[in-house]
């Protein structure tokens, strides 16, 4: 399948990529708003990443992996689109807790803001999620999303203004 994949290289791949698996999965979830589809996309992205790994020379494996995940998600026929979003999109982003009752209470508290974020246009919510939830720099977000830093800044600003506008209309 991949004749030049030596054990040393595959091990290097695992060491490099696995610490960023959670971030990869979260990005896919924000883009697809569906846990199963997100898992599929990350699985596909890992295969692609393994294929491109030989040519990886950078010093930023997280941005590299997230860029592959992002492109994999966007190239899906049923991937992110600019469209009206359904109300349950945010709820699917909430991870179930070990205790159903606690999970429910957590869901109540978390759902409003998550839902508002999930309803943002895809190119805005990916920027916001990478900034606020993965704590990435503008430069890294630009690398992942393939746009100039200035575009990242204006997308973040639009995303935040939208959330603030909605938050004002929807006080806690």
């Amino acid at each position: 399948m991949n004749p030049d994949a030596s054990p040393a290289r595959t091990e290097a791949f695992a060491r490099l990529v696995l610490p960023h698996l959670d971030a990869a999965y979260r990005l896919a979830r924000w883009l697809l708003r569906d846990p199963d589809a997100a898992q599929d996309v990350v699985q596909d992205a890992l295969v692609r990443a393994m294929t491109y790994f030989a040519s990886f020379r950078g010093d930023n494996p997280r941005a590299w992996l997230l860029q592959i995940v992002r492109n994999t998600a966007w190239s899906r026929p049923r991937g992110p689109r600019l469209e009206a979003l359904d109300d349950d999109a945010g709820a699917s982003l909430i991870a179930p807790g070990p205790d159903p009752e606690a999970a429910l209470a957590q869901t109540e508290a978390h759902s409003q803001l998550s839902r508002m974020m999930a309803r943002l246009p895809a190119e805005l919510r990916e920027c916001l999620a990478l900034r606020e939830l993965e704590d990435m720099s503008y430069r890294d977000i630009a690398e992942v999303t393939g746009v100039p830093v200035g575009t990242v800044m204006s997308r973040l600003f639009r995303a935040r203004k939208l959330l603030l506008g909605q938050a004002q209309g929807n006080p806690e």
Partner: peptide, 27 residues
């Protein structure tokens, strides 16, 4: 003030789920 409050709320309230074990296990 609004931007700071929004950022704090997102970071405090929006969950950060981890990858399903099946994903790591597939490796």
């Amino acid at each position: 003030r609004d931007l700071l409050a929004l950022s704090s709320r997102i970071r405090a309230d929006v969950p950060r789920p981890t990858a399903p074990l099946a994903l790591a296990a597939s490796l």
